[in-house]
Design a protein around this nucleic acid. Sequence first.
DNA 1: TGTACATCAGTGAACGCGCGTTCACTGATGTAC
DNA 2: TGTACATCAGTGAACGCGCGTTCACTGATGTAC
Lengths: 193, 193
Amino acid sequence: VSAEKRYHHGSLRAALLEAALDEIAVVGTSRLSLREVARRAGVSHAAPRHHFSDKGGLLTAIAAEGYRVLAEVTERAAATGRGLVDVGLAYVRFALDHPAFFAVMFRPDVYNPSDGVLAEARDDAAGVLLNAVAREFGVDASDDVVRDGAIAAWAMTHGFATLWLNGNLDFAGEPDALRLAARAFAVVPSLRD
Amino acid sequence: VSAEKRYHHGSLRAALLEAALDEIAVVGTSRLSLREVARRAGVSHAAPRHHFSDKGGLLTAIAAEGYRVLAEVTERAAATGRGLVDVGLAYVRFALDHPAFFAVMFRPDVYNPSDGVLAEARDDAAGVLLNAVAREFGVDASDDVVRDGAIAAWAMTHGFATLWLNGNLDFAGEPDALRLAARAFAVVPSLRD
DNA sequence: TGTACATCAGTGAACGCGCGTTCACTGATGTAC
DNA sequence: TGTACATCAGTGAACGCGCGTTCACTGATGTAC
């Protein structure tokens, strides 16, 4: 309790990021306000300026961390060796578990996409997918079909997650998103065999 | 010119919808303001109240019209008989041609999804997809696999359009979205054969 | 070990802005007789 | 054909709100000597 009253927060940057993620999960990326983030973190509304120049800076940090986590969870799924479907389902699970990351990461218009830390994490995540597709197809990762296949796989998993998170699949009456995803993905032969 | 000075606009409702679509295409759904829409339509900021109770009412009307157009263009693609891929590409083309419709339609949280006119148009669009999948699979539309296949196809086309529109596929260096989509979709066997 | 000083982190008041909403109003249109 | 009246469509001023941004400030921390 006394720690909460300290003038110097100690780890305000991390606290602000977490507060921003919470806030985004509730009101969405676009309605995020720095003042509300500061409020959630229990500091004055001008404090965030010392850690992020503006909203874009904060969102860039969020996107970078999001790509880092995504690369991690998809790599873990790929390592099980059960094939591309598992990687796709890991992608969907990531979106459901971290809706705020998901909402920010694929909106390069709201952050700085050429940020170094972010670009590296993003490339890592892309690499995981490309390798998984190459293994699934039994070809080298540099093969042209890998890029096209990766885009198709990415589109399908990303589309599913997006449609689900925005409430477009409620009509299906399936409360478990991952089960619905698994059933839908299983219809596609090259992912099933 | 004199027509622009008339006190009674004559077709303000339609003009407001068009202004809103233009504005959404520029600033996005979330930053849409009724005052800016009124400004674009050349009327006072309080005028929209006579046609739409609030922003949600305006977005509901936009979503309804969007689903109507989507049903129309996908139905036309289905009628060519060239298969599911054509329907999917028509979906992507719709998203590229009407980014504002696309940005609103799949955000049921910002409009009234149980609106009658809207629900009917949405069901029409869903019907087109389900029929196209059933024909592609050579089974009855009531078959369970049709629903799963429709979700998979929807996810892939929707995901592709979303990723493209948000600038996530710029790395591919392909200026023509439809060509990239066609190549990616062609990798999926059940859609190719 | 103590003292002086620079630097850093966070504060709180103030500002201008665009927004949604309300309200009394006025101009235009349609309809009854 | 004309007149009276109701209704509808759009106006413009006013309000309160939360926002981002600026700025002089103060409390806390680290470092040189």
